[in-house]
Nucleic acid binder design. Structure first.
Lengths: 100, 100
DNA sequence: ATAACATATCTATTTTTTTAGATATGTAGA
DNA sequence: TCTACATATCTAAAAAAATAGATATGTTAT
């Protein structure tokens, strides 16, 4: 868990929004076509629509968030689903509380 | 209290270090010449020495931290002392815990 | 008033980040 | 296998951040 790297992710409004949206996928995204739950998160296309940014930009953002271990990807056929990594998010908040 | 702006400050190792050092000034800095306490924080010169960066860079960093309300400056004669703004730091951690 | 000093601001350069178009990869279905 | 589609990666341009030297400002002491 790298505090600097995670803070860098959180220094961008869109990336923070993505993390917040993923907290309540059923409220923030339409249902998926292939499955009827959000257990593995949300596909990239839906996240892209919500941000209004280009596909490559959103993919880059999700990649940086994955590198920081803030999200976990899962393949479902053609789609990649992203969900929050609650353990790392919690560890980050705890680290700030204790060390900062 | 701006989460994005504060996260931007925290995305740099030196700036995080400055905040941490200011938590225990008596441990991390030599005593001041004019006063015998750290109630108003630490003068810029001491912080600069500790970072090893140039005077202008440290001043820029402290300015960005002040803009984010993470530190509070106080003039003492020729010196400007910087101390942590514990209320805002606390509010930031709480906001992350609740909103993130 | 002048000199010395601490800090801030200005200016410029290098590095990093943001962003998107183009292209590549991987998967599912015909 | 060929096509369509979702996502990732490559490439490049523009914007922002990092960094420091030079200069300005404000304060103290002489």
């Amino acid at each position: 868990m790298n505090v600097i790297e995670i803070s860098k992710v959180l220094s961008n409004k869109t990336r923070v929004n993505i993390l917040k949206w993923l907290k309540n996928p059923e409220v923030n995204f339409p249902p998926h076509q292939d499955i009827d739950h959000f257990d593995d998160g949300v596909c990239v296309g839906y996240i892209q629509d919500k941000t209004g940014l280009s596909q490559s930009t959103v993919s880059t953002y999700l990649n940086s968030m994955q590198n920081a271990d803030l999200v976990i990807p899962t393949r479902h056929g053609k789609w990649t689903y992203y969900r929050r990594n609650e353990a790392v998010i919690q560890a980050y908040v705890d680290a700030l509380k204790n060390e900062l």
